Simulated scan of single mutants.
Amino acid sequence: MIIRPRRLRANQKIRDLVRETVLTKNDLIMPLFIDENLNAGDKKEIPSMPNQYRFSIDGVVEECKEIADLGIPAVILFGIPRYKDEIASSAYDKNGVIQKSIRKIKDELGDELLIIADTCLCEYTSHGHCGLIKDNKVLNDETLEILSKIALSYAESGVDVVAPSDMMDGRVGRIRSVLEENDYKDVAIMSYAAKYASSFYGPFRDAAESSPKSSIKDRKTYQMDYGNSREALREIELDINEGADMVLVKPALPYLDILKMAKENFNVPVGGYCVSGEYSMIEAAAQNGWLNREEAIMEALYCIKRAGADFIITYWAKEVANLL
């Protein structure tokens, strides 16, 4: 007897019926860039990320209304401040770009949209690194105090989730302690637990103006080595033990094995960040006619979900919500 698996691939209806992995709107998180330097209502396209924009504070509120109307449950916010210095003081300013945005979005939308705020220093430091610098070294313990101040300022502004993306040792525990001490027990932590020192972040650094500008030219002393996988499990376990409610693997597509390992080893929600370089590669290839853009987008996101992601941060969230 010939075994014929092709019977279950014969047409779209039967393929849909037996599909193991399902992608829904509830899996999507839309990243948004908010530029304090833009005038009210303005937006500015990001050259290396076609169809992605920096928004003014007022403009991002309108964008969030559209995202909520599409049924996307969450956004993650990244800020471009007017002022940068060596200690990222704009990042924890009560009237900073993200703090103002959180309050305005919450005033307009309430609980219709989950607000996640990226919690890091790189967009706010003059040197572009995720930690404080002294004697040509990125400092770990001294940076934790700044990170906890940023997280607390976001909580005070009404954020739902803080997302430390810095990869400093012990930062989740410090943030969790400060939130608890100040009675923000309900603010969740989504930790970038396995964040690799990746070449796929280039367009993001263009968008957020966060490229390293000091004599330390890369982030390899604190972001993970792409040759390691067991280390990722250790990082994830540490963050969970320190109080992370959700964990994130970044980037997603080159690290599907890490996503799968995380899902199989830990009982917390695991997300994948389909990063700017992954986005821009597909967009560039599609513009050149080298692949079917819509098919490639859906395949990429389904692969991230199949690997084990409970949620996906993706710049295609709005478009995919429409397709779904």
Rank of each mutant, 00 (worst) to 15 (best):
S276M: 02
L70Q: 11
G158W: 09
A300S: 14
Y92D: 09
Y226P: 07
A284D: 13
L291Y: 06
A244D: 00
D186V: 03
P47R: 05
A262N: 03
T221E: 15
I87Q: 07
A300T: 13
N39L: 15
L152C: 02
E63R: 09
T143Y: 08
D245L: 02
L17K: 13
D245V: 06
V61A: 11
S89C: 12
S198E: 11
M30C: 10
L8V: 07
I236M: 01
T125C: 11
P47E: 07
N37T: 13
Y279Q: 03
N136L: 08
K94Q: 14
G110Y: 12
S229M: 14
V275K: 01
V268L: 15
T221D: 13
G41L: 15
E45D: 14
A208Q: 03
Y196V: 01
P47K: 06
D85Y: 00
V268N: 06
G272C: 06
A262H: 03
L8F: 14
N39D: 14
A40S: 15
N182T: 10
M1P: 13
D93G: 06
K149G: 05
N228G: 15
K43M: 15
M168C: 07
A244E: 02
N228W: 11
I67E: 03
F200C: 07
V18T: 12
M167N: 01
E209P: 03
L233F: 02
I216S: 05
A317E: 00
R103M: 15
A68S: 14
M49K: 05
H127W: 08
R171C: 01
L324K: 03
L132H: 02
V22M: 11
E66H: 13
R103L: 13
E156L: 07
R6W: 04
